[in-house]
Design a protein around this nucleic acid. Sequence first.
RNA 1: GCCAAAGUAGCUCAGCGGUAGAGCACUUCCAUGGUAAGGAAGGGGUCAUGGGUUCGAGUCCCAUCUUUGGCUCCA
Length: 513
Amino acid sequence: MIEITLPDGSKKKVEEGATPVDIAKEIHPALAKEVLSARVNGEIVDANRHLYADANLELLKWDDEGGKKAFWHSSAHLMAEALEDLYPGVKFGIGPPIENGFYYDVDLGGRELTPDELPEIEEKMKEHAQKKEVFERQEVSKEEALNFFKQKGDEYKLALIDELDDGDISFYKQGHFIDLCRGPHIPHTGYIKAVKLLNIAGAYWRGDENNKMLTRIYGITFPKQKELDDYLEQLEEAKKRDHRKLGKELDLFTFSDKVGPGLPMWTPKGAIVRETLQAFMRKEQERRGYKPVITPHIAKKDLYITSGHYEKYGEDSYRPIQTPHEGEEYMLKPMNCPHHCEIYKSQMHSYRDLPYRVFEFGTVYRYEQSGELNGLVRARGFTQDDAHIFCTPDQLKAEFTNVIDLIMVVFERLGFGGFTAQVSLRDPHDQENYIGSDENWQKAENAIMEAAEEKDLSTVPEYGEAAFYGPKLDFMVRDALSASLAFCWSIVAAICLFGSPLNKWLFCPSMTK
RNA sequence: GCCAAAGUAGCUCAGCGGUAGAGCACUUCCAUGGUAAGGAAGGGGUCAUGGGUUCGAGUCCCAUCUUUGGCUCCA
């Protein structure tokens, strides 16, 4: 007998080799039907994994993230099984669960998949689901794993296995389908009652554009048909609230092929909305000691070479424009920071002048790849509410808290309730790409975190997301229907400028609109 | 940029080799005191752009532009 400790602290004696589902059955038979996966000593495992030692056990159901992930991951396998039936010889890349559903990257060997074929795949999935095929886990050696996929001729899985350590490789089998997989999975396919394949897209193998493009099939599944219906209805509702659709219907902004892609134009009605928002932002900032400034739309290339932006982004920017006679190179302003620094430098400043705060509704232009453009969310010309604060190191934290206050006021007024705040830090494995001393980075990162803590702001640290010149505090806002159109705004970048001759700290709270 | 799909009336879309269509919207007229209610008539489209095939091209082919869904990236 082994002893299992449940989340409420109660303990249960069960037979050695019992599974989480067995234990759920003992608690209540109905519960067993809802268990999708389990957390055993902190690790998420299959709901029918055999337990041979005392453990802490948490049963995960649909309402738990771990349960959902197992469900959707299993759904990806179910889809793969269906695909293998319908398209013999299909090869598989990766097929993970995602925030809403799952996808699988497949190589159909040059064959193109059309959306018309998706219902057929859905039917096949349901067919296998009804058979209640059990997900069986098998531990395999690296050699066995390689042999299996060599024989199958799936070079993608071979590449994946290649990177795994021997002794840490497992297969999962349901029906006739066997896949390389870490798990965990739900007990059997019968849990999947409702299936919808949503769209098809190209995706590079391993996200590298030099690699072959695979076909990515997105889908979602639910334990109940009603849940799928509700989800699809929610998607429809989200579509109705698509800013591109509303922008057209309400006559707020427009695009023109002649003006160019990604270059929105605000119509009279849209301009009213925008002006109103700007007036609000201006007032809030002026009352906090920010002074408005105005800067030109172009600047000498040298400005961005000095700032370091040219080296970092120059290749992917609009090419410089030249003066007709002298051939001097000017760039469209991709950001306002260097301009604001020049304004600061135009006069001598005493420490008593600090903090020095300026802001601008600065329109900037950035080249974005054509495939990336998306309404006002990703445009080639857009206006930032961009502010810069010059302050001394010991003012850093106070300024940070002030900025957080400002953001909270704005969010509250705009009704952005459900935001998340992310502290974007350096990539610990790649210190090369950042300018400035380690010491200064430490100071800046600490100031952000201390300020966030002081304001009771719960933040998520994200390594490798910092700008090259400083850590950021990013606020991500979702639209009204968070389940679907989860678009994020990197609304505020709080930045410290190092290596600057000013030897002062610079903040750059900016909001994009 | 890459893969895929798409671009026909103000909007949503049908037509897929033989003289441009529907619904909604719009205009005019009629009807109408009862909760998004009707009837009649009418205006409106070089069917994204440029080439090609054909007796004949929204319709087939090629190129370009733009949009959509993803991939990659985002100061």
